[in-house]
Structure formats: structure tokens, C-alpha cells
Amino acid sequence: MLKKMRKGGKCCGSDTDPLELHGLKKIVLVGNPNVGKSVLFNRLTGAYVTVSNYPGTTVEVSRGKGKIGDKYFEVVDTPGMYSLLPITEEEAVSRRLLLNEHPEAVVHVVDAKNLPRMLPLTLQLIEAGLPVVLVLNMMDEAKKLGLDVNVSSLQKRLGVPVVSAVFIKGEGVEQLKRVIKENGKLVS
């Protein structure tokens, strides 16, 4: 299962055999550091990339194969980014990916506890004309803090699908898959 680790000298990025992924439609996971992109990646692909509780665990792009319905997709995990205007090298890695590839869906994973800090990137992704799905992760922790997020109102205002999730427990993964399947090419 852990093909990535076998390529000599590379440690933290996943590289499934490129031929295996050739021609598959892409789902790109983006978002601030430490919001759970890698957890989602592992859930979608059944592979394992390192997950930790601090920002900056992922510094390379990881690619894996995931199945939604009966269709296979290439799932791409990216280093965290705060904005489309990169400051650090890891952010530049993620932005370059968006500049060069043509994803079927861009899943913006955010920490539901910190929406004011996270949504500016959602706005930028929408502005860039990307097929965005917004995922509010860590909803359980947000609820404990007394935050009540009205998902449908947010969805209406943003004009993109919004899914609430607790990826570490697996909640929201199926719904996200459904949304991606139904909205095939989310671009308007």
C-alpha cells in the first residue's frame, strides 16, 4: 500500500505509479495548514500520508487513486496555503499545482472553528474560477465552542457546495463524495 516510501530518497510525498493515474480526473485538496487535508486524502485513497497535529506536516504534493461511485479519480493532497499569493516554498508548491493542472474538483478543507481566517481563501478560489467544494471540517470542535454554522445559508451566499465534516471520525466523507459525483465539473 505504501508505494511512495519505496522511491529512494523521498520521504514525505506520495507517488503512486504515474501510469496508473494517467488520464484520471483530478480531485485536488487545498486549504490552510493543519485543517485535515491529509486525513481526507487517506480516507479517499486508502493510502497513508503522514498526519500530525501541527501546521506544515505536508511539504510535498501527494497523489493517490480514489474511487467515487464506480469511477476512479486521482486525488491530490497539497501542502497548506493561506492565500493564492504564496509566501513560503510549500505554499508555492500548492499554487503551482493549481496553475498547471485542470482539476475536476478543488476541495477546500477548512477548520470550522476559524472560519473568519479560512474563508478568504475560499473567496479567492471561487474568484479564480475553480470548481470549488467547501468542506467545514472539525465541526465537532466548533460545536463545543458554541459555534452554530448554517451550512445552507453559507452555500447560498458562496454559490458553491458546502459540506460539514469530522474527517478524523470519517463523518462527511460520503457526503463529499456524493457532492463531487453529482456536480461533475463544478464550474458554472
Binding site: 472560519l115 473568519p116 474563508l119 473567496l123 463545543k144 458554541g146 459555534l147 448554517n150
Partner: peptide
């Protein structure tokens, strides 16, 4: 813009836990 979006969509209640 983010703040105005969130003003409608998020209500802050009491910290439960």
C-alpha cells in the same frame, strides 16, 4: 466580505464543553 458572509451564517453560542 468574509465577515459579512459569516455574520449571516454563523451564530456564536455558549461554549458547551
Amino acid at each position: 466580505l468574509t465577515n459579512s458572509l459569516l455574520a449571516d451564517a454563523v451564530k456564536e453560542g455558549k461554549v458547551t464543553d
